[in-house]
Design a protein around this nucleic acid. Structure first.
Lengths: 147, 147
DNA sequence: AAGAAAGTTTAGCATAGGCTAACTTATATA
DNA sequence: TATATAAGTTAGCCTATGCTAAACTTTCTT
């Protein structure tokens, strides 16, 4: 009985990690979109459907559908046939993601990972990094700057 | 024209990273399942539906459905109402994932991340780490062993 | 050996994230 | 200005991953 209680607790802890991964996944796409929209606005003044689709490597219609969700979630605004903009929350999230992205990528570089790989791996890793880990990575970059 | 060709190339490179992330995601679940099944077999001689469901924090029916896919993919074997086993490929994948998992977790510990966090973050990160990055992590662990 | 409990499976539903094809609107150029 | 091209939208499809509820086996207990 004491044993099975302990087992229950262990499993709860264990399953929490997987639950977090699943939650991270559903937040991931939103992060990628707003970051990309922010980049596009910075680079060329506006973000357009087609550019997002190309950069993401996805069909146009997929972008449209996803943007609808993001609009519902209050991250994005748009009018039919017009460019896409970010709400206040959208900008905030974009900044957050971009910051994380930079730290992870620079960390991988500092660790000695080749540049191309660092870029590619950072894209997958960034959404699964907790505040603690991010802090440790930042510390490492600070002590071992790549350039 | 030269410019738009260059842009096309840049976008192709960029989108490749996202494509890889999406591919990683669909492989992820299979990896988690076989690793967990391997653990259960090691720990108690057999893997059962309910245990997997508890550890993953997911409903029983979800496990059943996923196992059907894994069986189709040749990673798992099972007979109705009986325990679950791994095929040769299943074991191979499980070993691979476990190895990656261990390196990532020990790497995070060596980096100074708290134990609980390391465990939890490793679960998300491990599936997005390329061979290059894994090698860099292993090197780091080797030079900065945590214990 | 019968009935209760535990575990497994099926059915049916929902959401997210992909796709293509057909259609509509905006823009650029002849 | 008219029209061709580019861009955005809609509709309808698919798969993966979740869920609950109900049905069916197996196992345990009396």
């Amino acid at each position: 009985m004491a044993l099975s209680n302990k087992k229950g607790k262990v499993n709860k802890l264990r399953s929490a990690a997987f639950k977090r991964v699943r939650a991270d996944h559903s937040a991931e796409l939103a992060g990628d979109y707003v970051e990309m929209i922010a980049d596009l606005i910075d680079e060329r003044g506006e973000a357009r459907c087609t550019d997002i689709a190309m950069r993401l490597g996805v069909a146009n219609a997929t972008v449209v559908k996803t943007l609808k969700r993001l609009t519902d979630q209050g991250l994005v605004t748009q009018e039919p046939y017009r460019a896409i903009f970010l709400t206040g929350d959208g900008w905030k999230l974009a900044e957050d993601v971009k910051r994380k992205h930079e730290i992870v990528e620079r960390f991988l570089l500092a660790l000695g990972v080749p540049a191309e790989t660092a870029k590619s791996d950072a894209e997958g890793i960034e959404h699964h990094v907790s505040a603690d880990t991010l802090k440790a990575m930042a510390r490492f970059v600070f002590r071992n700057p790549f350039n």
